[in-house]
Nucleic acid binder design. Structure first.
Lengths: 159, 159
DNA sequence: AGAGTTAGGTTGATGTGTCAACCCTAGCGT
DNA sequence: ACGCTAGGGTTGACACATCAACCTAACTCT
């Protein structure tokens, strides 16, 4: 019933393959992170950003910029992470607190990052192989740009 | 701080490009669906499956098989969709109800599918172009298989 | 000085996903 | 007949995401 004008068969097939890969990979990685280290994908993302910053400390809006999260999501999540002792909010000269990674947070990310990277390599990087993987990287950048461009004009026109 | 043994630079870069693309594309498509048609990605997925089935009706566990959702998520979501009039649960000879797409549900999916497909084509299919897109499809299947294979042995060993 | 506006952040309500526990029936072995 | 397990499904509690509303300080414009 309702075989629409959707995508044609080849497009359809590859698109669904992509969707399936994306879901499969994401659930697998997320499960692993959660099961073996008690971290969610979101925790991981925050901790990676903090651990890569100069002194393990950033302002919330910087985290917002790198993660692309909405500010309310960020605020909520940081509160939860603080409650769990992974980060802490520290007053500084500016009006707003800095977000600082704690010892526990640092230990957590140091422990799980290698295992996580290994899984990414095993199931994604190595399966693609260097050429296809590089190609994917380029195409991905183009897609991001395309969507970005559209949204600019979109907002300009108020669409 | 903490520049770990993670992925090497090229890998890192392409991997992050992929992650960014995936997030960008997903939020964009989801927003569009929600804003213009009041449907979430999850609603869409269920409605697509139902509308492609023989008579717009399936058993819940069949939906579970095609969507790969956990049964509790499915159950919750179907209840919400029923409340909104997109589907209905209909008793049949077997002990369990069949999930049936309603007129409203059918209208919704018929209305939004072409627009959704157009966006997928514009920002993804066409940006990749036929060769790269086909290549992605193949690689995606391989990734799914790799993860699948791992999970089998994983479960067999109780890891 | 006083009235908008903007940027950085928090809060609360609501919708959604996950996990574990549970219910019910059918099939199986004894 | 008895107990076991497995399959299909629901439920409740909790974690998380989203949206709109709000707060406060700073910046602008007059």
């Amino acid at each position: 019933m309702s075989k629409g004008p959707w995508l044609d068969d080849d497009e359809q097939k590859a698109w669904r393959s992509y969707l399936l890969m994306q879901r499969t990979l994401e659930t697998h990685l997320e499960r692993h992170l959660q099961r073996d280290f008690g971290l969610s994908k979101s925790d991981f993302e925050i901790l990676v950003n903090l651990s890569e910053s100069e002194h393990g400390r950033m302002r919330a809006f910087e985290l917002g910029r790198s993660t692309q999260w909405e500010k309310s999501r960020l605020s909520h999540h940081l509160s939860r992470m603080e409650k769990r002792g992974l980060i802490r909010k520290e007053a500084c000269e500016s009006r707003y607190p800095e977000i600082v990674i704690t010892e526990d947070g640092l230990a957590a990310i140091r422990e799980c990052a290698p295992a996580h990277a290994a899984r990414v390599r095993e199931f994604f990087v190595d399966v693609f192989g260097p050429e296809r993987f590089a190609m994917l990287g380029e195409a991905a950048d183009e897609v991001v740009e395309a969507v970005g461009k559209h949204c600019e004009t979109d907002c300009a026109l108020g669409s």
